[in-house]
Design a protein around this nucleic acid. Sequence first.
DNA 1: TCAGTGATTAGG
DNA 2: CTAATCACTGAG
Length: 180
Amino acid sequence: MRTKFRTSRMPSGTRLSREFYQRDVLAVAQDLIGKSMIIRLPDMSYGNFPVNEVEAYRGSEDKACHAFRGRTRRTEIMYHEGGMLYVYLIYGMYWMLNVVTGKKDNPQAVLLRGVGNHHGPGKITRSFGIDSSFYGEDLTTSERIWFEDKGFKPEIKTGLRIGIDYAGEYWKTRPWRYFI
DNA sequence: TCAGTGATTAGG
DNA sequence: CTAATCACTGAG
């Protein structure tokens, strides 16, 4: 953390490490539930929002994962080692915020669907002004967004991933949505 | 139930 | 270049 942004309002906690994100996406997705998303707000203070809903997208095998169609400029960041952000625009209006997980060249990501009182992937990014400038952001070094463990261990429920009817019977029935 | 909205992608 | 698609949202 550069001194520049160290203020009295900086939250104290344990920033999640590279190792946390480098695990398989199903483990990371579940473990992200209850962790805190720390984000720098317009007034330069930091907001703390517990993650309450996510979905896992698991590699080139997963028909619902963007990496299913291979490496493209958009999906390139998913091939990086875990701990980066994958941000993309959908329907011309909504930025989707994803956390890249797994080892290098194993394209996986966790979609954030709910943090704090913000429910809905497009609403999260709209609320915090997250856009393409966050693409490739490194969560282990960023000064404007990262995740912390504050010791909150909620009970986790599972469900089907939303909006992937095109993915075929097997992939659309994986219970890879996790929520509180 | 359905329109809005534009980047991304595959294909010619 | 064209056209289809889309991990969504809000209005009616």
